[in-house]
Design a protein around this nucleic acid. Structure first.
Lengths: 231, 231
DNA sequence: ACGATGTTATAACTTTGTTATAAAGAACTG
DNA sequence: CAGTTCTTTATAACAAAGTTATAACATCGT
């Protein structure tokens, strides 16, 4: 009998069910008032158990938030993976950017949670989650959502739309930083309206994209745009 | 006797001194461990008074943080105003971006505090500070640091380097969002090294800048760059 | 079926923000 | 200068939250 073939026993099922129930309730509280609105006592009360459940399931509040953090990244990955891999890398890239924004707008609390880690403010997740402990938030590079972006960039480089003498990761970072900054400001309520925000998003993305292209890529972008494929 | 000519009485002096002492100690605690590390009890203990002082001086913890928030924006304004108004708007603009980054790197906690408001997470300052209450964080547009940026953009438009058929504020937003995203990621420890971060910053800023320029502006940028003025 | 293991409920402890209250101090008024 | 009034402060009490200790409970493996 090996060490790994545990049977799906009753307690095991209850354990995962408990975990799921807690996570669901916690995510709802997260939606309502952000991470600070998650009170272990209220959470346990909502789920119908005691606060100890959080400690056995997640090791404490930090572990709970780390789990929510993971959930957030899973959702982002799903959002990014649902973008069809267009045969035109530039179209693919633009769609990835739009999907990122859509994710942020549809999951504002999760998005805020994700980037709250990125701030030196929140020491919660940094110390808890295995992948994000030693290098603060740099491990995101290894995350699936970033890999999508990187592949799109590499495809752009391969077709000659982007310079080959710049490290693709550097280009990906540039694009990501821009999209992230735009989403941050929009969620902050900086723009007057959603239309304004959308306009700003489109303008800025296309600007940074243009700025990253080779002359050949510019021609291609022009062609794609007049064909209405960049909308 | 008018209502406004209060004399610099003894209590008044003590009041401002108390305020300053509390703010100093609070900012140090902010530096050490972020806003959550500010405990009114420890703060009062450090200053040598009781927690009530915070309530009389700032109305409570929210008011204290709002004051720190104001301090943060003051520092940013100072940083931006210290950038000489170069006669070449493109140079001025690039220098404003670099000054923004320098401010973020030198005041990471204040920067984190500033953008924590921008998140829907933190309800602290939103409800407290007069200018930032009704429109969540949009009032930043009226802030001095943003005005500097806007004027630089307008100068670019006037010399024909940037398109006149796009609202200057939209262009300013684009540039700001990019710079902000870059600083966020850098402070998050996303880049491997400060050099990497600097390289990414330069690449991305120049990309978004290029993407926002008119053909005439591109020529000008080229000329300035080969003259070594954009470094 | 029973001992070992893990889980939960209850309660206590600690910390934190906030409020009530009474004492102390300063400013104004005559 | 003396008395009154207003503000500020220190102390203590309160409520809420995270965490921990402990004992009862349930569950799994043998």
């Amino acid at each position: 009998m090996s060490l790994d073939d545990r049977i799906d026993t009753a307690t095991d099922r209850r354990r995962t069910a408990q975990r799921a129930a807690l996570l669901d309730a916690a995510s709802e509280m997260l939606m309502r008032g952000g991470p600070d609105a998650i009170s272990l006592r209220k959470l346990a009360s909502n789920v119908g158990t005691s606060t100890m459940a959080v400690y056995t399931a997640f090791g404490g509040k930090e572990g709970l938030i780390a789990a929510l953090f993971e959930e957030a990244f899973d959702r982002l990955s799903t959002a990014q993976n649902s973008v069809p891999r267009d045969k035109e890398p530039l179209v693919w890239l633009a769609n990835l950017g739009r999907a990122y924004r859509r994710f942020a707008l549809e999951n504002p609390s999760y998005y805020a949670l994700m980037i709250s880690v990125t701030m030196p403010v929140n020491e919660t997740v940094r110390h808890e989650h295995p992948d994000y402990s030693t290098p603060p938030a740099r491990a995101i590079s290894r995350h699936s959502s970033y890999q999508n972006l990187l592949e799109a960039i590499q495809a752009c480089v391969e077709e000659g739309s982007m310079p080959a003498d710049i490290h693709p990761a550097m280009i990906a970072d540039a694009f990501w930083a821009t999209v992230h900054g735009l989403c941050s400001l929009e969620l902050a309520g900086f723009y007057r309206s959603a239309d304004d925000a959308g306009e700003g998003f489109a303008l800025t993305c296309s600007a940074v994209l243009k700025g990253l292209l080779t002359p050949k890529g510019l021609v291609k972008l022009e062609a794609l745009a007049s064909a209405g494929l960049m909308a």
